[in-house]
Amino acid sequence: MSRLKVLLPSARHLVTEELARGVVERYDEAAVGEHTVDFERRLDLGGFDDAVSAVMASHDAGDLSMDGAMAEAVHRQLRLSRREAADPGIWRYLAIVHRPEVVRHRWEYRSFATMRTRFWRHGTRFDANAFSRWWWVAELTVMAEDYSLTHRALGSSALSTHLFSRQLAWHHPTVAACVRILADAPGADVERTLRVLGKMLGLRVAEAMGREELEGLVRAARG
């Protein structure tokens, strides 16, 4: 059974246009051996593979509604601490070596520049490594095994794009307030509201604010 590994920074050259387009379907694990090291503990990928394959099977290629399902599946199957998940090498291993077809299934090839970041860049930005983004968005939105906030946040393209590129998304009550108020808002509205909210929070300490105060602030930002 496959085990989670870490892809080293030296493997950057493996993200090629051929891989992004699927001309190279996947790399032979032996061939990338010199660029991988074992993850710090044994973590089998069997459950992860099954869950990811199931989501792929139930969603057409390019269907953005698979984001919520993928985020939940990836987060449920990869029980990682935040410290462990902070290593970009594991996400790169999953996207570049282990399951590159998942990245290609979610994102239609448009340009190599953006496709490249979906394999390589770490984080939660909309153009980050697909697995890293799914796992981290789920981590920031899950509430005791309840992924409903995750699904709602990723269900809105505008919200998932603009919310998770901001530090305010690291604060769970703030994220919850944003999703509750903005999940169904028009894209332009979401973008502007989050920009104003970011500025407002620069004058406040979100951690010191209650749910109602935060929701009030989001509404005020929306104007």
Partner: peptide, 19 residues
């Protein structure tokens, strides 16, 4: 007013406040 200690770790997107 209250005093707060806010713990923030950029690499793990961790934020926590302590009143």
């Amino acid at each position: 007013a209250d005093l707060w200690l806010v713990v923030q770790c950029d690499r793990t997107a961790w934020r926590a406040g302590h009143r």
